[in-house]
């Protein structure tokens, strides 16, 4: 659970009203969204050559195999970049600024990167490359993957 500066318990890091993620009709990312509901992190991994790939695509960019598999990976990474957002770019964010968007690299998955929010004080200034871990945030329609700093 995220807490804002007044220490009120918030259900989600960002307010409700942002669009819910939905698996693509093509099925290219269905496994990912199914896995987050189980509080598991999975990423695309080529069944032929073993390359990791993110975001999901219909074929492997290394060997062009269309047989892309899914690999469960540890929910830990390093804070590759982050920004503090002050401008409400969506009406649902009107009273939610500032908030932090993080780009996290996953060393256990070929250094692919994922995006989430950085839980905790939105005024924190975590060093780049800090260790972070995944926190699953359950919404009615989908489970988001958030991140929090574990060590600096």
């Amino acid at each position: 659970m995220a807490q804002d500066s007044k220490s009120e318990i918030k259900k989600y890091y960002l307010p409700e009203g942002l669009p819910a993620p939905r698996a693509a009709r093509t099925g290219v990312d269905k496994e990912y969204w199914d896995a987050t509901k189980r509080h598991e992190l999975v990423v695309q991994k080529c069944n032929s050559c073993g390359a990791f790939q993110w975001g999901p695509e219909v074929l492997c960019h290394q060997c062009h195999s269309f047989e892309m598999g899914w690999q469960k990976v540890a929910g830990r990474g390093r804070l590759y970049s982050w920004v503090r957002c002050w401008n409400p770019v969506h009406p649902a964010l009107k009273d939610a600024c500032p908030y932090i968007v993080a780009v996290v690299e996953l060393p256990d998955a070929g250094n692919i990167r994922m995006v989430g929010n950085l839980l905790g004080d939105p005024h924190q200034n975590p060093p780049f490359d800090s260790a972070v871990e995944a926190v699953f945030e359950d919404h009615p329609d989908a489970t988001l993957v958030q991140w929090k700093v574990t060590a600096k």
Binding site: P21, R22, A23, V89, L93, V115, G116, N117
Partner: peptide, 20 residues
Amino acid sequence: NSVSGAPAFTAPYGLYVPAQ
């Protein structure tokens, strides 16, 4: 109300626009 494809991995986190 919902978002799919690549934006599904960014928009729910408030990552939306070129400035970001």
